[in-house]
Structures are given as structure tokens and as C-alpha cells.
Design a protein around this nucleic acid. Sequence first.
DNA 1: AGGATTTCTGACTTTCTAATCAGAAACACA
DNA 2: TGTGTTTCTGATTAGAAAGTCAGAAATCCT
Lengths: 215, 215
Amino acid sequence: MLEAVAAPPTRKGPQTAGRIREAALELFSRLGFERVTMGEIAAAAGVSQATLHYHFDDKACLWRAAMLQLGAVIAEEERLLEAMADAPPEVQLRMAMKLFLRISWKHPALGRIVALEGMAGGERLAWLDAHLTGPRNRRLAEIAQAAIDSGALKPFPAPMLVITLQAASAGVINLAPMMGVSFGMDPSAPEARQAHEQMILDAILGGLLTHPTTP
Amino acid sequence: MLEAVAAPPTRKGPQTAGRIREAALELFSRLGFERVTMGEIAAAAGVSQATLHYHFDDKACLWRAAMLQLGAVIAEEERLLEAMADAPPEVQLRMAMKLFLRISWKHPALGRIVALEGMAGGERLAWLDAHLTGPRNRRLAEIAQAAIDSGALKPFPAPMLVITLQAASAGVINLAPMMGVSFGMDPSAPEARQAHEQMILDAILGGLLTHPTTP
DNA sequence: AGGATTTCTGACTTTCTAATCAGAAACACA
DNA sequence: TGTGTTTCTGATTAGAAAGTCAGAAATCCT
């Protein structure tokens, strides 16, 4: 059985495969592809190393399967966005950022993977773009462009706006280890998270709008 | 000779060691520590693999030596900042961001390294914090705090402000490969860079100020 | 229960990588 | 020129990691 994403749970195999994917996602997203060994993933999932190769052909295949776990997350994001396709684009954009923040805190792997592979380039980035991040990025850019055209958003290149907003949002989340080391601060504490959301949505997104609505 | 950072240039060795450090910095910063092999660095520097071990004890040692190349960059940043220690903190902060942008475009390795190791944690992050990024981060946080205390900056946690500003600035630079793949856009083109600077300094930093000075 | 199927594992092979070392080549200097 | 020093390299070693495979263990079905 090779990288079956969804399978009937009557048998026991898919459950194990799921545990493996979860462990792999956590490790891959924190450390990147080659910093993680199959042995570590096996240990984290509580199975032997050979079991990994029973469920997934090779390491790259396991990586892709782990990434597809994130597909559901992104799909949820997309669905909520589509539900408000009729709202003014700047409202959609604000909601998209709010969703992105919420989801990034819940699934920090997403932003970390984008940061890791988005810097390195290569075939894994191409795969991510085709299967996960590309469509969402381009949809967000369209919304941003619409907001620019309607005069609500300052006229910066839409791709740049989208990437910068995501980078600004994910920065504190991704770099939590560094914030701990440099400042002794844990940004995932509830009060920090609230300040973070306010900072991103009101101050930073606000600064990009022509007429910020929130004080 | 083990990780001599500065040496009399009369002999030929230090020159080779410098080439090795440059090649190592480029590769390490783009791909991270373990994604890079000594063979690749040797090939990029045009020497044999054994030469790397003649100049540097081991891979970790070479990594640190490569990172210290960035020390000069950061020192320059610091120096220019100290020259305006008497200016109002929000002016210092704006200048710091302008410097950071300029330096990040010139030496993209800095932001990439921070992103890579700042996510992963571990001893390399601790080393970076102690030798390169920690002092600068804490100084910037002090400036931000002063700007908050003077009422010029909105009162978000200073460490969060500093990290977010840097993440927002470096996002487009670090993720240039992803912008190429997702949007077919090269953010390092001159006009894109100018838009980027304006976006960061005026819109984003502006949104964090209580009374933005630039329209 | 008993056979068939799925799931899993220990032991092994192959490949890749960091690190070592003896000695060659380049160089400085008398 | 000859000698000693610095710099560099090819060949090799040791170890780690991915991937393979025969067969054990668990599970399912009748």
C-alpha cells in the first residue's frame, strides 16, 4: 500500500500509517527533510523502521504523504474563504489573515514547511506549490488585487503583499524557539497570542489599508 | 590552523579559507546545515574535500566560521545604529529597518540562517544568539520599548514587534524561490525592491506607529 | 480451530558522508 | 639551488542512513 491518503479504517494498517504521517509531519516541519531520519520518525511513531517502508515506498513518498495531512487544513481555510466570496475584498483579506493566524497556531507545521522549502527551492517546493500552497497563494493575491483595484488597499504588488502578510504572521510562530532563546518569551502563551493577532490584523494589515477601519 | 577568522594575508592559506567560508555561507544559509555536504562546499570553493578539513576542524567548525562572516555585516549595522543613539526611538527604529532591508538584500544569508535555525532550535541557535543575533535583537527590542514608552509606537510586546518586523522584511527576500514558483515574480528586481522598501517602512512600520509621519 | 491475509520486525545490503592520513605540490627563504 | 614550511590532495576508513527481504506476529474470515 503506497501513500494511500484515505482508506477504510476497518483494518489496522491505516491507523498506523496515520500515526506515522503525524510523527513525520511534526519532525519534517520542524527540522526539514534531510535533518530527519527514518529512524527518528519510526521511534516517534512507535514502530520499527521497516514499517515505514511497508506503508510508504521511500522517504520522499512519506514526506508527501505527511504534507497532504496539511491539505485538509488548507481545504478548511479555503472553504471558509469561499463562503464569503461576496464580501468586499478587504474584508475577505482580513478574514483570510485571521484564519491564517488561527490555523497557524493550531498547525504550526504549515508555516514552517513553507519557510523551509520556500527558501530552498527545488522539487519539493514545486510539489508544494502544485498541491498545497500555490492555489491558495494565487487566490489570496487575487483578493489583494481586487482590494487594490477598489482603492481599499495601498497599491503594492499583490504577490508581495500576500507573502509579506504571511511571513509577518508566521514569523513569531515559526521563530518561537528563537524568541525563547533571545527573550525568554513564549509567544504561544494566550495573552501573547491575543496581542499577536491584534498586531497583525489591526496594526500591520491596517497599515496596508488606505482607510483602516480599526483604530 | 583551526577557524582563524583574521590572519595576515601574506600567505596563501587565508585566501583559500575565505573562499571556503563564502561558499559554505551561501550553501548553509540556503539549505541548512545537514542538507549541505562537505563535498558540495569543496566543489563550490574549487578545492578538494580534504582541504576543508585542513582549514577547519570539522563541519560544525566550518559552519561557525561561515557564520562569523556575517559578524562583520551585523557589526556594520550596529555601528550605524549607535551613531544615531540620540535620535528619537521611532526614528532609530525606522533607520534600523531601513538598514536591515538594505543589508538583507545584499546578504540574504543572514535572514535565511535566522529562519532556518530559529525554527529548529538547538545548539546552533544558541550559538547564533550568543554570537550574532541575540545582542542585536535585544538592542532593537530596547529601542522598540523606548518608542512604546514615548507613545510613538503602539504598545505591543517589544520582542514580538522586533521579530515580526524582521520576519515581514525578510519574508519576500527569503522566499524569493517561492515567489518565482507561485507567481513568476522575481522580488530582487530593482522596481520590486523599491516597492518592498516602501511597503515595509511606510505601510507596515507606519501601521505600528501611533502617528505615522509618512502618508 | 485453522488457513489466509494483513501488518510488522530484525537482520542485512548498499550508498552516502564526515573525517583521517601519508605524502605530493607550491612556496618562502637562505 | 636546496631546505624547510605551508598548503593541498588522493586514497582510505569508519559510521550513519536509506532501503530490502525473509519470515514472525497479529488479525480476519469461515
